[in-house]
Design a binder for these strands. Structure first.
Length: 489
RNA sequence: GGUGUGUUCGUCUAGUGGUUAGGACGCUGCCCUCUCACGGCGGAAGCAGGGGUUCAAUCCCCCUACGCACUACCA
């Protein structure tokens, strides 16, 4: 038996944004392909004309690119099996549907959706399992041909055997068995000539030489039908591997209502794409050692299907936040420059007035205490703008009447300093504190509040050195004046 | 209702027929410290329940409970 080249695919239907569940499926496919040196294809399953949305396709592709999941064949890059849009592959599906009819594995069905609806309703009423009653299955071929000739609308249905079982092996669950009699005669070709998922999927996976199907486990119940289809077409089915679903906190599906659900949502919340890939990889898979922070190359090296497990996982946003913080710690400040510039500018920071090295310095001081990109804005705007307010609780503690004298004293001391380096500043503050019979913190906290408006932040002396003497003196003066005037209670 | 699938700390997970059931997030105590983070050292917290098999079951088998999925001319 020869090992087939690994060829996997992510086959989304462009009906909306890229859900994190879909992203996780894409990531596992991608990791598996990269680990094995195989191919990763992107195929667009746009066979539902009623749900087609061109915008969704654009966003989907943008999201995949943002995550850094490059595909070897598919939209934009082409490949030997074009087209990678199912809507442009109709002749293939029609050909095989016809073949199935001719070989007696499928038949035309003229039942209207009204009849089908009524049938289902009746079955439900009687507490019976709902399934097609196979009314058209026994139509004589000649009669069927005549009705088609007459232009009667019809679909093509697959003839599922009445007896026997269909067994297939799922890579992470083992053998799964279905009784054929509970499978009903699924539709292969719709009235409009478009294929259903089942037909298109099987035909394309075969034609595109897909070796492993990694998809969400909602597809398990469809798999026996697919296997039957492969058999009827005389093809060898691929290896199946059904991935567990991702749930929201507290159970249930991840949705907008429960916070965020799409990759775009998390991008907007300020998570790095590498972090999303890392985090999502850990949902349903682990490397088998105590390792969680894994850059892409490590993930690729470690990823194997036999370590994927079948339990559905809850998406824990706090852990995602932690992981994002870990990446912030590792990334150099320059890395954040292009990510942060637009955010800061949007918040009103006049970045043009500052040198790039100053901005990088600000990032360096902020990144180790930030968890998401917006933190840089929320807790770092003072690098570029005067603080507009002072944290109230802290202000009441430090900006009390008389505090202006302290600030004025500090201003006087700072004016005399030979340079504005952090060690010099620290020595100055320690000296001043001693002279005044105070603790360092008694000077440090009011200063930080005057400079940033916040009760926390980078080490004060690094912050002062970064801001520069002029800005420091100006802000201390402003705070002193504000204290003198008094704050509205 | 039917069919399928799953169940190790709150969450993500490691693990084995005999372990003090390991790690991580979160929570929490202490240390570091100018604050906030980071980091370090600790703590609380788990094998869904019931039957088997076995000298021994978290691990193997069965049942129950609960969750989830599917049950479309959607994917």
């Amino acid at each position: 038996m020869t090992e087939k080249r690994v060829r996997v695919r992510f086959a989304p239907s462009p009906t909306g944004y890229l859900h994190v569940g879909g992203a996780r499926t894409a990531i596992f496919n991608w990791l598996f392909a990269r680990h094995t040196g195989g191919d990763f294809l992107l195929r667009i399953e746009d066979t539902d004309q009623t749900r087609y949305d061109e915008n969704a396709l654009k966003e989907l592709i943008a999201d995949l690119k943002w995550l850094g999941l490059s595909w070897d064949e598919g939209p934009e890059v082409g490949g030997p099996h074009e087209s990678y849009f199912q809507s442009q592959r109709l002749p293939h599906y029609q050909k095989y549907a016809k073949q199935l009819v001719e070989t007696g594995h499928a038949y035309p069905c003229f039942c209207t959706s009204e009849r089908l609806d009524a049938l289902r309703e009746q079955q439900k009423l009687n507490n019976l399992p709902s399934s097609y009653d196979r009314l058209c299955r026994n139509l004589p071929v000649a009669v069927a041909a005549q009705r088609i000739q007459a232009g009667e609308k019809h679909v093509i249905r697959f003839k599922v055997p009445f007896h026997g079982n269909t067994i297939f092996t799922d890579l992470i669950r083992g053998q799964i068995e279905y009784q054929n009699r509970i499978l009903d005669d699924l539709v292969l070709l719709k009235t409009d000539g478009f294929p259903t998922y089942h037909l298109a999927n099987v035909v394309d996976d075969h034609l595109m030489e897909i070796s492993h199907v990694l998809r969400g486990d909602e597809w398990i119940p469809s798999t026996p039908r697919h296997v039957l289809l492969y058999q009827a077409l005389g093809w060898e089915p691929p290896t199946f591997c059904h991935l567990p679903v991702i749930l929201a906190e507290g159970g249930g599906k991840l949705s907008k209502r429960k916070g965020a659900a799409s990759v775009g949502d998390y991008r907007d919340l300020g998570y790095l794409p590498e972090v999303m890939v890392n985090f999502l990889s850990l949902l349903g898979w682990s490397p088998g050692e105590d390792l969680e922070y894994m850059e892409k190359d490590v993930l690729i090296e470690k990823f194997t299907l036999d370590r994927v497990h079948p339990k559905s996982a809850v998406f824990d946003e706090r852990k995602l936040e932690w992981l994002n913080g870990q990446y912030f710690l590792q990334r150099p400040a320059e890395y954040f420059l292009p990510l942060l510039k637009p955010l800061w500018e949007k918040a009103g920071a006049p970045l043009a007035e500052f040198s790039e090295s100053y901005i990088v310095q600000a990032i360096a001081l902020l990144k180790d205490r930030s968890k998401r990109l917006p933190d840089f804005v929320e807790f770092g705007l003072y690098f570029f703008k005067e603080p507009e307010t002072y944290d109230e609780k802290s202000r009441k503690k430090y900006f009390v009447p008389g505090a202006e004298i302290l600030l004025d004293t500090l201003i006087a001391e700072l004016e005399l300093l030979p340079n504005f380096e952090a060690p010099t500043l620290e020595a100055c503050y320690r000296d001043a504190a001693e002279k005044m019979g105070k603790k360092g913190g008694d000077l440090i906290h009011p200063t930080r509040l005057a400079l940033s408006g916040l009760p926390f932040g980078p080490g004060l002396f690094e912050l002062m050195a970064a801001l520069g003497r002029e800005t420091v003196l100006r802000r201390l003066g402003a705070a002193s004046a504000a204290i003198r005037i008094g704050f509205p209670s």
